[in-house]
């Protein structure tokens, strides 16, 4: 249980960073932390004490009941791909914003109001 709570704590760290930080790059990193915490949570869901990898291999006969759950692992892979895309897009946006404004500080990037 403590592991799940720590996952949630990591998630909150990400939220805190995304909300309070003023630097565009730090915001991107904070969003990354949020994503990692969820990925960790999903992988932990799949864990089963004493279970082994969900792989069929020659000479390695694991019964299905002794395998960890493979679905969350597939989910994590997909969500990593999505995060990669989001991070790349946001980094590109941040670079373009830097070209226009000459700063990464969001308090100085305020051409739009509220």
């Amino acid at each position: 249980m403590i592991l799940y709570i720590m996952c949630f704590f990591l998630f909150l760290v990400g939220v805190y960073g995304a909300i309070t930080k003023r630097d565009l790059i730090k915001i991107i990193l904070a969003i990354g932390i949020m994503g990692y915490s969820v990925n960790l949570f999903l992988v932990l869901l799949a864990y089963r004490t004493g279970a082994l990898v969900p792989i069929l291999k020659k000479g390695l006969n694991i019964p299905a009941s002794m395998m960890v759950d493979p679905i969350p692992q597939a989910l994590v892979l997909t969500s990593i791909v999505i995060e990669l895309g989001i991070t790349a897009l946001m980094a590109a946006l941040a670079i373009r914003i830097y070209q226009k404004y000459g700063t990464f500080d969001i308090t100085k990037i305020r051409r739009l109001q509220g």
């Binding site: 565009l24 946006l93 941040a94 373009r96 914003i97 404004y101 990037i109 051409r111 739009l112």
Partner: peptide, 8 residues
């Protein structure tokens, strides 16, 4: 500028 900011 505004569009990039809004998108971010």
């Amino acid at each position: 500028s505004e569009e990039l900011e809004a998108a971010f």
